[in-house]
C-alpha cells in the first residue's frame, strides 16, 4: 500500500506540467480557432488563403514532427531556445487550433441565413452582426466538438515528455518504471487513471458550458447522449 502512495505522489509531481500544458494549450487553441475560423470565412481572398494554408499545413503534418521542429529546428533558425513547456503549449495550441478553426467555420456556417438577413435588416454593423447575432448561436454548435478536441489536446500533452517536460507521463516512464520495474502494470494503470480523471473533468466542464450557452439562447437543455 505504501508503494501505491509513493507512485501517486511521484505522478502528482508531473501534474502541474500536464495541467499547464492542457490549460495553456486550450487557451491558445480557442484564440487561434476563432481567428483562423473566422478568417476562413473572410470576404478577402488573401485572408482566406493564408488561413487555409495554416489549417491544412498544421492538420497535414504530424504533431510530434511539429513539436520536434519547434523544439529542435526553430532555435537554430531564430537563435534562442524556447522553454520546453512553452514550446509544448505553442505546438498544442497551433495544432489543435487548426482543427478548431474548422469547427468554428462549420458552426458559423450552420447558423441559418435568415439570421444574417434579419441582422442586416436591423442595420447592425458587420461586427455587431457577428457578435450579437451569429456567434451566440454558433457557439452552442461549437461546444460538443470542442469538448472532443480538448480531450484530444489533453491526451497529446503526453507527447511533451519527448521534449523533457516533466509531465505525468514522463514521471511514470523515467522515474517509476526504472525504479519499480516489477510493478509496471499497476503503475501504468494509475498513470492512465490520472488522464481518465482529467478527461472526465473536461467532459463535465463542457457539459456545464453547453447548458449555460443553451439557456442563454432560451433553448431547453437537451439530453446529451
Amino acid at each position: 500500500m505504501s508503494d501505491l502512495s509513493t507512485w501517486f505522489q511521484v505522478l502528482l509531481l508531473g501534474l502541474p506540467a500536464t495541467l499547464i500544458a492542457t490549460v495553456g494549450g486550450i487557451a491558445l487553441t480557442v484564440v487561434l480557432s476563432f481567428v483562423a475560423g473566422l478568417a476562413l470565412l473572410s470576404p478577402s481572398r488573401t485572408v482566406r488563403v493564408v488561413s487555409r494554408i495554416y489549417v491544412e499545413g498544421l492538420r497535414g503534418t504530424s504533431e510530434v514532427v511539429q513539436l520536434f521542429w519547434i523544439f529542435f529546428a526553430l532555435p537554430v533558425l531564430v537563435g534562442f531556445q524556447i522553454v520546453p513547456i512553452w514550446a509544448g503549449v505553442l505546438v498544442l495550441g497551433l495544432n489543435h487550433g487548426a482543427y478548431g478553426a474548422e469547427i468554428v467555420r462549420g458552426a458559423v456556417q450552420s447558423v441559418p441565413r435568415a439570421q444574417y438577413e434579419g441582422a442586416l435588416a436591423l442595420s447592425l454593423s458587420p461586427a455587431q452582426r457577428m457578435r450579437r447575432v451569429i456567434l451566440p448561436q454558433a457557439v452552442v454548435e461549437m461546444l460538443p466538438p470542442a469538448g472532443n478536441l480538448f480531450i484530444q489536446l489533453l491526451k497529446s500533452t503526453a507527447l511533451l515528455s519527448f521534449v523533457f517536460v516533466q509531465d505525468v507521463t514522463r514521471q511514470a516512464h523515467d522515474v517509476l518504471i526504472p525504479a519499480f520495474n516489477p510493478y509496471v502494470f499497476p503503475i501504468l494503470l494509475l498513470t492512465l487513471a490520472f488522464y481518465l480523471v482529467l478527461s472526465l473533468l473536461i467532459t463535465a466542464g463542457m457539459r456545464a458550458l453547453e447548458r449555460v450557452a443553451g439557456r442563454r439562447l432560451g433553448r431547453v437543455a437537451v439530453g446529451v447522449g
Binding site: 507521463t169 518504471i177 502494470f185 498513470t191 488522464y195
Partner: peptide, 16 residues
Amino acid sequence: VRSTPLLVQVFFLFFV
C-alpha cells in the same frame, strides 16, 4: 481507451 493518451497505452503494452 478514448479518454487516455495513446503514448501511455503504448508504454502499457510495451512494458506489461
